[in-house]
């Protein structure tokens, strides 16, 4: 039971890191970036190629994949979303879905359809025992990395000038412009952070499950999006809680109920939660005095 719980938190931590990308972009740009999952896939291929074909050391490969995803995120925003800044949200949504298929098919051309097997970088580290539960090292690493990211991001948005400006832009772009905040560059930075995190998530995901193919990012992407909605989209702690709960539910459902139905159960829980709390667990609905 404890093993499953820790594995659930670990998987949930990866979902949480991905969910941050959705939730931050939604908070600032008020759009759902459905290509986010595929940025994870591109990041995973990037770190895979550096490690396997160029013999780049693991930390450097991860760093390079973060850089690549950051640039990719900014580029996607500039080319595909920025021109639609004043378009209807439906047009932006369709563009995001199109971008998702574009990245998947680009990956299909470059890396072909047959799956690659991501190296187990912790194969020389023994499994870790916690209170009778035996878990893989990557599980613990995922949890710690997620915690570190959450703390850093919370400090960033609450304490730094840039972070406060981001919160201002997410509330009122016009008023933020009047303050002298460059809304476009704030949106770019948000995409950059989200995409950089996607590279980290991809690295952890592929280290956990090893299988890497052009559609690798789509299912975790959708689940992380679910986690973001579950926790309350736009909320950073919401992404964290939503992600971890989703991971735990998925692993427990797979272990005790049915591995075939695990995903159905996950989405079923989402539907039930949204019936009772339409804004998610920590959804923002502060009453404003006018």
């Amino acid at each position: 039971m404890l093993t499953h719980l820790i594995n659930g938190i670990s998987l949930g931590s990866i979902y949480a890191i991905i969910a941050l990308g959705y939730t931050m972009v939604y908070g600032i740009a008020k759009m759902l970036n459905f290509a986010h999952g595929d940025v994870i896939m591109v990041g995973s291929y990037a770190s895979f190629c550096f490690m396997m074909y160029k013999n780049v050391p693991v930390p450097l490969a991860l760093l390079l994949s973060i850089v690549i995803c950051t640039v990719l995120g900014i580029t996607i925003e500039r080319l595909a979303y920025k021109p639609l800044r004043s378009a209807t949200s439906l047009a932006v949504l369709i563009t995001a879905i199109g971008m998702s298929y574009f990245l998947q098919n680009l990956a299909l051309i470059i890396w072909k359809a047959d799956p690659k097997w991501y190296p187990d970088i912790f194969k020389d580290t023994a499994a870790i025992e916690i209170g009778g539960a035996v878990v893989k090292p990557v599980a613990i690493v995922s949890i710690l990395v997620n915690l570190l990211i959450m703390i850093t991001l919370t400090l960033f948005t609450n304490r730094t000038r840039m972070g406060k400006a981001m919160r201002a832009v997410s509330e009122d772009k016009g008023a933020a412009t009047l303050m002298g905040i460059n809304v476009n560059s704030t949106i770019s930075i948000t995409f950059a952070i989200g995409s950089g995190l996607a590279a980290i998530a991809g690295f952890l995901l592929c280290t956990t499950y090893s299988r890497l193919e052009p559609t690798t990012g789509s299912m975790p992407g959708i689940k992380a999006f679910t986690a973001a909605v579950f926790g309350g989209i736009g909320s950073i702690p919401g992404a964290m809680i939503g992600g971890i709960l989703l991971g735990i539910i998925e692993i427990l459902a797979r272990a005790y109920l049915s591995s075939e139905l695990a995903d159905a159960i996950v989405f079923g829980v989402l539907i039930i939660v949204l019936l009772f709390k339409p804004n998610g667990l920590l959804g923002k609905k502060i009453r404003e005095k006018v």
Binding site: A168, D172, G174, L178, I181, E288
Partner: peptide
């Protein structure tokens, strides 16, 4: 020059202090 917009448009989820800091963003 600074414009104080119609309907106030303060940043509701920022503190009073943070709102003022945003005013001095530049």
């Amino acid at each position: 020059m600074a414009l104080c917009p119609e309907g106030r448009r303060v940043f509701a989820q920022l503190s009073v202090r943070e709102n003022l800091e945003m005013g001095a963003y530049t």
